[in-house]
Computed example of a mutant assay.
Amino acid sequence: MDSTFVNQVMSKNVLTVDKSTSIQEAAEKMHKSNVGCVVVTDDLKPVGIVTERDFVTKVAAEGRPLFTEISEVMSSPLITIDQEETIWEASEMMKQKTIHKLPVLEDEKIIGIITTTDIVRISSLGSDSQMRRVCDQILLRMKDK
């Protein structure tokens, strides 16, 4: 049975900002790039992530000034996945960690991101045989547990 891998589904449009970037500048870049999160870097190494939800819960709800550095509101350590993992593994990781966005790492560099929306899209856009294959993967994994 064929598997669907993260690198087949991930988006390569990943926005990154340095940890010293202000939350306002990060939000402006997210808006301009039309993305729902930003990966935070330190000397180009990914160290955290800030999502739209973080802007609600950690910025607006706490009344943080817009000049606050993004590193103060990022989720860290950054949870990542390898591009050769299956979407099943990505789904399991998201479920266990209660996250919706999973950066894809290769050689300590962000090369993409997979989201719950991507997983739903691949499940709903596929042909019946593709959907059956995804369901079979899930059922096989459930049997092993």
Rank of each mutant, 00 (worst) to 15 (best):
F67K: 09
F67W: 15
T68A: 06
T68C: 11
T68L: 12
E69L: 10
E69D: 07
I70V: 15
S71R: 14
S71G: 09
S71P: 04
E72F: 14
E72N: 10
V73E: 06
V73R: 12
M74Y: 09
S75D: 04
S75G: 09
S76A: 08
S76C: 08
S76N: 04
P77W: 04
L78V: 07
L78G: 04
I79W: 01
I79L: 08
I79K: 11
I79H: 08
I79C: 05
T80S: 13
T80A: 03
I81R: 04
D82V: 05
Q83K: 14
Q83H: 09
Q83V: 09
E84S: 15
E84G: 14
E85T: 03
E85C: 14
E85R: 15
T86C: 02
T86L: 02
T86Q: 07
I87K: 06
I87F: 07
I87M: 05
W88Q: 03
W88M: 00
E89A: 08
E89I: 03
E89V: 03
A90N: 03
A90M: 05
S91W: 02
E92Q: 05
M93I: 15
M93K: 11
M94V: 01
M94Q: 01
K95P: 00
K95Y: 08
K95F: 04
K95M: 00
Q96K: 13
K97I: 01
K97R: 10
T98M: 04
T98F: 11
I99E: 01
I99S: 07
I99T: 04
H100F: 08
K101M: 03
K101S: 02
L102V: 07
L102F: 05
L102I: 02
L102S: 06
P103V: 00
P103H: 00
P103Y: 00
P103E: 00
V104H: 09
V104W: 05
V104P: 03
L105G: 03
L105Y: 08
L105I: 13
L105R: 08
E106H: 15
E106R: 15
E106D: 11
E106N: 12
E106C: 12
E106T: 12
E106F: 13
D107G: 14
E108I: 11
K109N: 11
I110D: 01
I110Y: 05
I110N: 03
I110G: 02
I111N: 08
I111Y: 06
G112K: 04
G112D: 00
I113Y: 05
I113H: 03
I113W: 05
I114T: 01
I114W: 02
I114S: 02
I114M: 01
T115H: 13
T116K: 15
T116S: 13
T116F: 09
T116V: 07
T117H: 13
T117K: 12
D118Q: 14
D118E: 12
D118Y: 14
I119S: 07
I119C: 07
I119T: 09
I119G: 10
I119D: 01
V120E: 10
V120F: 12
V120Y: 09
R121K: 15
R121H: 13
R121S: 13
R121T: 09
I122N: 12
S123Q: 05
S123A: 10
S124G: 11
L125F: 15
G126T: 03
G126C: 05
G126V: 01
